[in-house]
Design a binder for these strands. Structure first.
Lengths: 127, 127
DNA sequence: CCAATGTTTCGATAAATTCCGATATGTATT
DNA sequence: AATACATATCGGAATTTATCGAAACATTGG
């Protein structure tokens, strides 16, 4: 994938961040839309969006648009790379990541529309 | 090794840096002393030392003192971790890293004392 | 003890990153 | 067209990081 030092450094920078690493690990366990990511991780929607943008630039994930929703998943080309494998393997064992995954199951069960409305409400009542 | 999100993020930050990644890859191909690292990578000795400190804090390398020299190598406990394996695998393919390794062979052939004196001289003539 | 030398830490400025509310963009629905 | 809604981007103050010469520290050998 990346055959240049700078590119790999940029990719590493992308995951050298608590939220972005959690997002990557979360997406690594299955496709999600942006609002689901924001809801699962309990962060502002703009933060989720920015985290995903960086992960996209790093070449780790890709997006699939469906109407106004954007679904994100691990880029299959990257899935084979030793680097991503190592990162995901390291992340999988973390308690925080496991909790996020459990929460993702609940959120997925609700369906996308319900979740996204919930996010909107959370934003509004955020003071 | 690291069983906490923050620790892994700190480890990733340590290698999200051109010089530090090069240093890690270099040490990954065999033990070197600090002055050799500085000479191979053509950086000030203090930069090499700082890079190694971060890699040590990240749990990737350890040191072995021999007189006034400090030899650094990959921490054997870390060598087994998927994360480090992935990082080293990704780095190995980079042209810059391969050049560094070729240069390391030359520098190693000179022996430690000759190299370290050379570094001193380079510093002095650095204007 | 003193000088030489390898390494580490400090200092200080410049540059990059983080964070999230506000705003903009694009897409469906009516 | 107008509204609603999901996502993306912007602004910009606060925090962190990078860099490397200078100075401090540690070890060896006279």
């Amino acid at each position: 994938m990346a055959d240049d030092l700078r590119e790999i450094v940029e990719s590493l920078k992308a995951v050298s961040h608590p939220l972005r690493l959690r997002v990557l690990a979360l997406v690594g366990s299955g496709e999600l839309c942006v609002c689901q990511v924001a809801e699962v991780l309990q962060v502002p929607q703009s933060s989720a969006s920015e985290a995903l943008r960086e992960l996209r630039r790093a070449g780790f994930v890709n997006e699939r648009k469906e109407g106004r929703w954007v679904f994100v998943s691990i880029l299959s080309a990257a899935e084979a790379s030793p680097l991503l494998k190592g990162i995901l393997a390291a992340a999988r064992g973390l308690p925080e990541v496991q909790k996020d995954r459990a929460r993702a199951l609940e959120v997925k069960a609700l369906g996308v529309p319900a979740v996204c409305c919930k996010v909107q409400k959370a934003e509004a009542s955020h003071v």
